[in-house]
Amino acid sequence: MLESLFFLIVAAVAVISSILVITCKNPINSALSLVMTFFCLATFYVMLDAPFMAAIQVIVYAGAIMVLIVFVIMLLNIRTETGRKTTHAILAGSIIGLFVLFQTCYFLTKGTLTGTKGAMDTALVEKVGHVELIGKALYTDFLLPFEITSLLLLVAIIGAVILSKRKI
């Protein structure tokens, strides 16, 4: 009871702050609303027995990435709001958006949205520990994807240097 009440409050904050991200005129306000959204997501992770994910969400997204975004906004010094025009694109977008919303609601009420439990259930997480399980999965089941990530980072580093260094 208390948990679902708490969930509803956090969910409401998450929805409102993510709407604010795209409606705020000032980019700094948008960025701060995004931080709020990330914190709400982190809360969800905690409620789902995934404390490691929550910590990563706060450290990486709300911390590192958002600091970067705010820095860029401040360096670019965007002040003037480019005038918002009511174009056909906005109209078409909202029609499609409403359609998708309707579709989602239809599925939620109509279909059987039951997922399948994987091998790692709550009891196991509480017994072994979240971080240990993730570490084990990374080095056994997902060893290759884990290694590919390092290639991906290498590519990203090369790309960042190539595209942005003043003189190469």
Partner: peptide
């Protein structure tokens, strides 16, 4: 044959292609 491998392979490919497309600075 793992969706994660496919996804990360696609990302390695895509990120390199983004850079290559903008290579003529």
């Amino acid at each position: 044959t793992d969706l994660m491998t496919i996804f990360l392979g696609l990302e390695v490919l895509s990120v390199s292609l983004y850079v290559l497309a903008g290579f003529n600075r």
